[in-house]
Design a protein around this nucleic acid. Structure first.
Lengths: 338, 338
DNA sequence: AGCGTTTGCCAAATCGTTTTGGCTGGAATG
DNA sequence: CATTCCAGCCAAAACGATTTGGCAAACGCT
C-alpha cells in the first residue's frame, strides 16, 4: 500500500478524520482514551502527515530560508564563505528541533529568488544599506531576522548582532598596548553594520586622542586584490600608520601580502587585525581577530524568527552579543605575552 | 488583495482555470493567442503558483535535500566541514536553475530526519558501508545520488565519484619521484569509498614493488588527535617509512604535529599528502593534496538526480571524475621544482 | 452531405489536510 | 420536569493547484 493518509488512520482507529486530526495536533476536544487509540493506530500504520496538504490548508510551509547578502568573494575558491556554512548548519539544526527545515540560498543568488520559493521566514546574513534581499522579503511580507543590522534602516528590526563598537574599541586599546599607536582602518565600500560600527568606534577613539582618522576603502568583490591595493595606498599616503584593522578577512590577507612586498614587518612595523574565520586562523602569520560565536548567532536568529512567526504582531526585538578578541601573531601584545 | 490564485488569472484572462493551468505548464492544447493572453494576465496580477497546492496534487515538492554522512569532526571548530558548504552551495545553485530548492541537512543530524521532511530526492556526501542515511532513504523510496560510492553496496547506484585508485597511484608515484620511497597509509576505521579505494591502490602499488604494506587506522571522530596518535604509532613501529598518505585532512594536520614533536623534518624525513581543503591549503607547511573540484561534483550530482527524477526506471548511472594532485610544501618534488 | 478526427476549451474530480458548524446525549441548573 | 450547557464526536467545506473526461466547432475525407 502507498503512504497511509489520515483517512486510513481514522478507519484503523474507528473514528472520523476530524478526530484524528484533532488528536494528533492537540486541537479541539478529544477524550484521552480516544487520543490514545488514534496515536496507536497512527503508529501502527507508520502514518506521517503530508506536508503539502497541511501546508495548503494552513498556508504554512514549515520551511525557513537562509541567505548571505555578502557575495562569495571567491578570491581563492574554497572556504571563502565557510562561516556561512557554520551559520547555516547551526541554523538548520536549531530550526529542525522546532520542526522547520532550512532551505539554503546559494551564495550570489538573485534576490528575486524569494518570489519563487515558498517559505515561512528567512535569515539574512550581513545585510547592507538598502539591502535587495530584505526589500524582496518585505515586498512578499515574509518575516525575517538579520544577522548584523541593516545600516540606515528606519526602525529597529528583528536582528542578532555583535557589539562591534565595543569590540573595535577594545581592539584599538589592544593595539595601543604595544606602545604609541597610529591606527588606520581598511573598510569595504559596501556598508554593512559591522563596518559602519567599526568606523564609528574608530573615529571616536582617534578623536579622543587628537589623532587624524585614516580610513581607506575598496569594493568587497575585489577581495584579496582590494585589500592589497588598499594597503599599498595606505602605506604610500600615511607612512606614520603602524596598526590597521581590516575587518573583511580576504582584505586582511591581501594586506599582509602588500606589507610583505613593501618589506614591512608584522607586527613590529605594522599591527594587523581582522574578523575571525578560517583565513585568520590558518593564515601565516596567524591574524589577531575579533571573534564571534557564529553558531550562537544562528541559534539566536532562529529563535527570534520563531518568536516572530508565533506572533507576527510582536514588536521587533534585537539581541546583541559580545565578541572576543583572539590574539595571534599579527599584534604586538602577542609577542609580549607569547 | 491577498496573493492571486489561478482562479483570479482565469477571470482576468477570460478563460477557465484548466486553460490557465495548461497555458502555464505547457500541458494540453491551447491556442497560441490564448496562451499569450493568459501569460499577460498572470504577469499583470503578479501570479505565482502556490507550491503547496501544486505539490499536493502532483505529489512532488520540488525540494531536494543535501546531507553529509561524515560527522562534523569539530577538532578546532570553524571550517572543519567547509567543503560541505562548497558542495551544498553549488548544488543549491544548480538545483535552483531547474526550479528545485535545496534543504540543508545539518551536520550530525539523525538519519530519521528523512521520514519527517518532504523531499523529491537527496544528495548524500561520502556514504560509508551500510550507510544509515541511505538506508533511511531507501526505506522511504526517495531517489538519491551519492558523492563517493557506498562501499560494499550490491549493485551500482547513482553516484559521482573521483577516481581515487588512479589518484592514489599517481600520488605514490609522485612520492617516489623524491627518491627511494617507503610509503604508508593512515586511514579512518570508517569505510568510505575514497578510503577503501586508496587502500586498494596502495596495496597494489607496494605489492608490485615487493614492499610490505603499512596501514594504520583511527576513528574519524578523533580528528586531529586520531591523526596524531596514528602517526606516533607508525613512527614507533615502522621507522623505515618515509612517506605517508593521510586522506582525512584533520588526521593529516594531526600527523604533522606528531612529526614535529618527534623531530622529523617534512618533507626530507617524511613526505605527507592528504585530500585537499582549507586545512591542506592553509596549514603550515602547506600540504600536498589530491584535489577534486567539489563544485563540479555537486553540479553533476544534481544533474544525475534530476535525470533520475525524470525517469525513475532508468538504470543507475555513475560519473567518475579525475582528481588533480596539487603539489605544496610537504613532498620532495615540490622542493625540487619550487 | 455524411462521417471521423482533431482542435480548443471547460466543469468537475482529485490530492490530504485543517477548520467550521452542527449534532448527540448526559450533567448541571432552575 | 424542562431547560441549558458542555464534552465528544462527525460530515462537509475549505485550501489552490492538476488531471480527467467530455463537449462543441472546425476540418478532412469519401
Amino acid at each position: 500500500m502507498s503512504r497511509p493518509t489520515i483517512a486510513d488512520v481514522a478507519a484503523e482507529a474507528g473514528v472520523s478524520k476530524t478526530t484524528v486530526s484533532h488528536a494528533l495536533t492537540g486541537q479541539g476536544r478529544v477524550k484521552e482514551e480516544t487520543t490514545r487509540r488514534v496515536l496507536d493506530a497512527a503508529e501502527r500504520l507508520g502514518y506521517r502527515p503530508n506536508m503539502m496538504a497541511r501546508g495548503l490548508r494552513t498556508a504554512r510551509t514549515r520551511l525557513l530560508a537562509i541567505a548571505n547578502s555578502v557575495p562569495a568573494v571567491v578570491a581563492d575558491g574554497a572556504g571563502a564563505l565557510s562561516y556561512y556554512m557554520t551559520v547555516a548548519g547551526s541554523a538548520a539544526r536549531t530550526a529542525l528541533r522546532s520542526g522547520y527545515a532550512t532551505i539554503l540560498i546559494p551564495p550570489d543568488a538573485a534576490p528575486g529568488i524569494f518570489s519563487d520559493i515558498a517559505i515561512d521566514g528567512a535569515i539574512i546574513l550581513d545585510p547592507q544599506t538598502a539591502d535587495p534581499f530584505l526589500a524582496a522579503l518585505r515586498k512578499r511580507h515574509v518575516p525575517f531576522v538579520t544577522i548584523g543590522r541593516e545600516p540606515g534602516a528606519l526602525g529597529a528590526g528583528w536582528c542578532v548582532d555583535s557589539d562591534m563598537i565595543d569590540a573595535t574599541t577594545r581592539l584599538l586599546d589592544h593595539f595601543a598596548l604595544g606602545g604609541s599607536c597610529r591606527p588606520a582602518l581598511i573598510l569595504t565600500e559596501e556598508q554593512r553594520s559591522y563596518s559602519t560600527d567599526a568606523r564609528l568606534a574608530y573615529e571616536r577613539w582617534v578623536a579622543q586622542r587628537g589623532l587624524p582618522p585614516v580610513v581607506v576603502t575598496a569594493h568587497e568583490k575585489r577581495a584579496e586584490k582590494g585589500g592589497h591595493a588598499a594597503m599599498s595606498r595606505l602605506l604610500a599616503a600615511h607612512p606614520q600608520v603602524n596598526a590597521v584593522f581590516v575587518p573583511l578577512d580576504p582584505f586582511a590577507t591581501g594586506a599582509l601580502h602588500a606589507l610583505a612586498e613593501a618589506g614591512r614587518r608584522v607586527p613590529q612595523d605594522m599591527q594587523v587585525a581582522t574578523l575571525d574565520g578560517v583565513r585568520a586562523q590558518f593564515s601565516v602569520p596567524a591574524l589577531t581577530a575579533v571573534s564571534d560565536d557564529m553558531e550562537a548567532f544562528a541559534r539566536c536568529a532562529v529563535e527570534l524568527l520563531l518568536e516572530q512567526l508565533a506572533d507576527p504582531a510582536a514588536t521587533p526585538r534585537g539581541v546583541t552579543m559580545q565578541s572576543r578578541i583572539v590574539v595571534r601573531d599579527t599584534t604586538l601584545a602577542a609577542a609580549a605575552t607569547g
